[in-house]
Design a protein around this nucleic acid. Structure first.
Length: 274
DNA sequence: CCCATGTCCTGCCAGC
DNA sequence: TGCTGGCAGGACATGG
């Protein structure tokens, strides 16, 4: 579910509530969402820890805790992290609750249960493998037309599958990669190495633009996504191609088509995207 | 290296 | 109405 703009929005919405707060207790309803620690130990370690910082890397949220611990969270397809007060009814599919000294709670609710959290401290690697091996952060200064060219260089694979691959660029998912390719006027099946410098420049601009616009809109709420305070995003109203099969292209009026690429439905305009 | 496919899950919706 | 199949913002393993 959540791609970079959604995770960034969740981070911003939770920061005022959790950063500076101390975890007073943990309720584990589904131990399977915790990797690297047994539920009991997980609760024991977290109790009394203060949250020093909340950061995002790719689609991960990272809680930096006291005593050198970190808690990294991936929300999968449908995961939500919600800040609620302890009186609120516990909804179905709530897997984990962190209680805070402010009497608020951080609740992890995830219908499809693909989301996971990873606690690291003494002895265990600081980050889960998926997080440790993430590629460039697309809204950081390290991401430039030149570094994008490096990534693209000599790769035969389709641009769509390359953009979805978190080892190269971190944070794009199915929605924003389709929107970026549309913005750049590039067909999702084009082999990466075949791009001209000019097209790489357009792709770079388009990636940065869709991610920034996504954040500015508070993310894309098609089904499940809401931020840490339960607020929906607005970017679903600004999508050019994603989910718009058989509808007219907003640029040229041609009918938008879809294709399966790397197992994901990809939307594009056959006239605008070459 | 690259790709397609299957897997983990539950819910929803179209079509019969 | 009720059932069924297909599909959904992700990531990883596997086999070709």
């Amino acid at each position: 579910m959540p791609e970079l703009p959604e995770v960034e929005t969740i981070k911003r919405s939770l920061t005022p509530y959790v950063v500076g707060g101390t975890i007073t207790g943990v309720q584990v309803f589904n131990p399977a969402v915790i990797i690297s620690y047994k539920a009991e130990e997980f609760s024991h370690v977290l109790k009394g820890k203060k949250v020093l910082a909340l950061d995002r890397r790719g689609k991960y949220l990272i809680f930096t805790l006291t005593d050198g611990y970190t808690l990294s969270w991936h929300l999968g397809m449908t995961g939500r992290l919600l800040w609620l007060n302890s009186q609120e009814r516990i909804e179905r599919h709530t897997h984990l609750i962190l209680n805070f000294d402010s009497h608020g709670q951080l609740r992890f609710v995830d219908v499809r249960r693909f989301g996971r959290c990873y606690l690291a401290g003494k002895g265990s690697p600081a980050y889960p493998e998926g997080l440790a091996r993430l590629g460039l952060e697309p809204l950081s200064p390290a991401f430039t037309p030149e570094t994008l060219k490096e990534i693209i260089r000599s790769k035969k694979r389709s641009l769509k599958s390359l953009l979805l691959d978190q080892h190269h660029i971190a944070g794009l998912g199915n929605i924003y990669s389709d929107e970026a390719l549309f913005g750049a006027g590039i067909h999702p099946l084009r082999p990466a190495y075949a791009l001209s410098d000019e097209e790489i420049g357009r792709l770079y601009e388009a990636i940065v633009k869709v991610l920034q616009e996504g954040i500015a809109s508070g993310g894309t709420s098609i089904r499940d996504y809401v931020d840490g305070t339960g607020r929906k995003g607005d970017y679903q109203n600004r999508l050019s191609v994603y989910g718009r099969k058989d509808q007219p292209c907003p640029r040229c009026g041609e009918t938008i088509k879809s294709l399966k690429i790397s197992g994901r439905t990809s939307y594009f305009c056959p006239r605008c995207q070459k």
